[in-house]
Simulated scan of single mutants.
Amino acid sequence: MPYYVHSDPNADDGHWSTGGMRECARAGRCSDPRIEESGGKTVRLPALTPRAFCTADRDAVARALDALPALFVRVHMELGNRGSGSGGPVVSVSKSAPVPLSLGADELLRLILATLVSWEERVRTVARLVPLDTETSRQRRDGAILTQAWTILAAHLDALLALESEPMMRDGELVYLDGGDAGLDILYLAWRCRALLTETAKAARHLHGVPCGSCGFCELREVLDDNGQQDGARCRQCGAQYDAETYKALVAEKSAPIRLSGAHRRGLVATAGDDRLSRRA
């Protein structure tokens, strides 16, 4: 069965008219946002794409899916660590001595399996593969469930992301989900694993008082090198990047005069013809 045209991996976003596009399913977290003017302000909007995700975020979903098997194994190794996102009680798995079990890790493992299998079932349908035998699948070991679901999804990723909206069971309720939701699920599962393994990055520090040289907004966030030292900055508003040297030059050019005028509090950028003396007065 061919993939939906809007999910063709060979499609070039630039060959489609705006009318045939839709916004990237990652919305405000889109990795390749477009910058537009609205009401006299610069706004950051999701990329327009003929598929569920822009190319950058489709690749992000692929990387998250590739990482899930190894992350699953590592989370499984945390089952015996009660400090892994749990703090729950000791769970007895037999009549012998109770075994300390991380309820956080256990819940996450079950969520991963249930989520991947639910999408596996839908991909099997659109790809015309043998339907999943629910009763037999429940008797398999976790590793076998994960391996089979991951193999199907990895081999048909673009078919997965092209799924149309259909009802699926989530938390005991039927909700309508499509390929965009599938990609978001995969990204979320990978993030949950890294969070439990304490591998999620700390929020980038806001570099107050320094406006972006491209859009003028004071929305610069620090960029760190491999040693955790500041190595530049990135604008959260327009996405402009600054290495260490260009950021240093930007600070020298913009920071001092704007702090004197107070314009940084209003998101204004001083220009060459700006009468700073009058403004300070």
Rank of each mutant, 00 (worst) to 15 (best):
V5D: 05
L184W: 02
A154L: 01
R266H: 13
M169L: 15
D181I: 01
T136E: 08
Q139V: 03
L220I: 03
I145D: 10
S137K: 09
V210G: 07
R51F: 10
L268T: 00
S102L: 07
R170Y: 05
R58F: 12
S165M: 14
D181A: 11
D274Q: 04
R128F: 15
E120T: 00
T55C: 09
D8E: 04
L174N: 08
W150R: 05
M168N: 00
L113M: 04
E173V: 14
L224Q: 04
V75T: 14
E78C: 12
F217H: 05
R234C: 01
V75E: 12
A11L: 12
C193E: 06
W150M: 03
D66N: 15
D275R: 12
A162Q: 07
D8I: 09
R140W: 14
R266S: 11
R141W: 05
G80D: 13
N10L: 12
R266A: 10
V210H: 11
D158H: 15
L111G: 10
V130D: 15
G213C: 05
V43D: 02
S261W: 03
E222R: 05
T200V: 15
A97C: 09
R170H: 01
W150E: 10
E253P: 08
C238E: 00
E166Q: 13
L129H: 07
R63C: 06
D181F: 01
P100Q: 13
G262T: 04
A60W: 03
G40H: 02
P2C: 01
R58H: 14
S118D: 00
A64L: 09
T271K: 08
V93K: 15
M1W: 13
Y247M: 07
A144K: 06
G143K: 02
V175T: 07
G183E: 03
V130T: 09
L163T: 02
M1T: 14
A272G: 00
S278R: 11
I258C: 14
A270I: 15
I152M: 01
K254C: 11
L224A: 07
V269F: 06
S137Y: 10
A252S: 12
V117D: 00
T198R: 07
S118C: 01
G239R: 00
V43E: 07
D181H: 12
P211N: 08
R259L: 15
Q148L: 07
M169P: 00
A270T: 13
M21E: 06
A149I: 04
A67T: 09
Y242T: 14
T55K: 14
T200G: 06
A162W: 05
D66V: 10
E222T: 04
D59S: 11
S261V: 08
E164S: 06
S31G: 09
V269S: 12
G180I: 03
S84A: 14
S96V: 11
S86F: 03
L189V: 13
L65P: 05
D181E: 12
